[in-house]
């Protein structure tokens, strides 16, 4: 039974790691995976499979995932775009965790009116779609403010589940006999949190943190699809995006590569498909890792 449980945990963990590792490699050492400069533009016209094309070039031996409107290699831009995209997702999900857990701890420690106020704020925050919240903040302040604004907007939109997780876990654990026994033998609040609450929270919190990262990554892609992305240098106009006009993409970033591709799916399918596929690939990998971690940690804690 134990061997079976272990295998059930390792299977998704291994599968997820196999999907995530190439993405990590791309983020850490992009030059290892592609020798092509992501900013290098192709010729104005090019013959592909006997047909003359102007940019964007379709997928071929020269451009495995096609090129963008400026004739730049999509694969190379995806590889070089991994680092900014993943670091943004990591920072924003870390902020969500810090804010959510800190407020949860404050709500549990102080309780009373402050606890109720934090619970109410968490309820209100959970009711507002994170995409709209982040979009509103970034567009109102101005996307030119850069990564810090994106981190704050994405990080302050999804902290509520973490507050709920901490509060509900502590309330559940407070009724456990072993915690009462620890309190009876004189355990301090710190030692209760360090030796009893944190290990009990870990099996659900660690996979949830991985899922949070995937959720933020998805949000970055969705914001990019709506024309809000890191490094945007022209004012956003929704009518242009609806009409299928692609904005200027100064730096490679997965969200930005999806901007203005609403109509491109019919003419140049590789423009939205390549970045969308890499986002899906990464989310799938992280979800599998999260599931494997959940099974493994649950098995270990039992």
């Amino acid at each position: 039974m134990n061997r079976m449980a272990r295998r059930q945990a390792w299977l998704p963990l291994g599968g997820g790691a196999a999907l995530v590792l190439p993405v990590l490699l791309a983020a850490l050492w992009p030059a290892l995976l592609t020798p092509i400069d992501p900013e290098q533009r192709g010729p104005a016209m090019q013959q592909i499979d006997g047909v003359w094309w102007a940019p964007p070039y379709p997928p071929s031996a020269a451009y495995w995932l096609g090129s963008d409107l400026a004739g730049r290699d999509q694969l190379s831009r995806l590889i070089h775009g991994a680092a900014p995209t993943l670091s943004l997702a990591l920072s924003a999900s870390a902020l969500r965790l810090v804010v959510g857990i800190a407020l949860g701890v404050v709500a549990v420690a102080l309780g009373g009116t402050i606890g109720h106020a934090i619970a109410a704020a968490a309820e209100a925050s959970a009711a507002l779609p994170p995409l709209l919240f982040a979009f509103l903040i970034i567009v109102t302040v101005g996307a030119h403010a850069g990564a810090p604004l994106f981190i704050v907007a994405l990080g302050l939109s999804g902290w509520a589940p973490w507050t709920h997780l901490v509060v509900s876990a502590v309330q559940r654990l407070a009724r456990e006999p072993y915690l009462e026994a620890a309190r009876a033998i004189g355990a301090t609040r710190w030692s209760l949190a360090r030796y009893y609450v944190t290990p009990a929270l870990a099996p659900s919190a660690i996979p949830a943190a991985a899922q949070e990262f995937a959720a933020v990554l998805l949000l970055i892609a969705e914001l990019g699809f709506l024309g809000v992305f890191l490094g945007i240098d022209t004012p956003l106009r929704l009518s242009d995006l609806l009409a299928g006009d692609q904005p200027n993409l100064p730096a490679p970033e997965w969200g930005g590569m999806l901007a203005g591709t609403r109509m491109a799916i019919f003419r140049q399918f590789w423009l939205p498909l390549a970045p969308a596929a890499i986002v899906l690939w990464t989310i799938l990998g992280i979800s599998l890792v999260a599931e494997g971690l959940r099974r493994r940690l649950t098995w270990v804690s039992h």
Binding site: P129, L131, L132, F135, L136, T140, L238, L242
Partner: peptide, 21 residues
């Protein structure tokens, strides 16, 4: 917001995006 934007459906999501942008 995403679905209404993609299908040009004049619901709350698209109206919000339009007003904000």
């Amino acid at each position: 917001p995403i679905v209404e934007f993609l299908f040009s459906w004049p619901g709350v999501g698209l109206e919000l995006l339009r007003h904000i942008v």
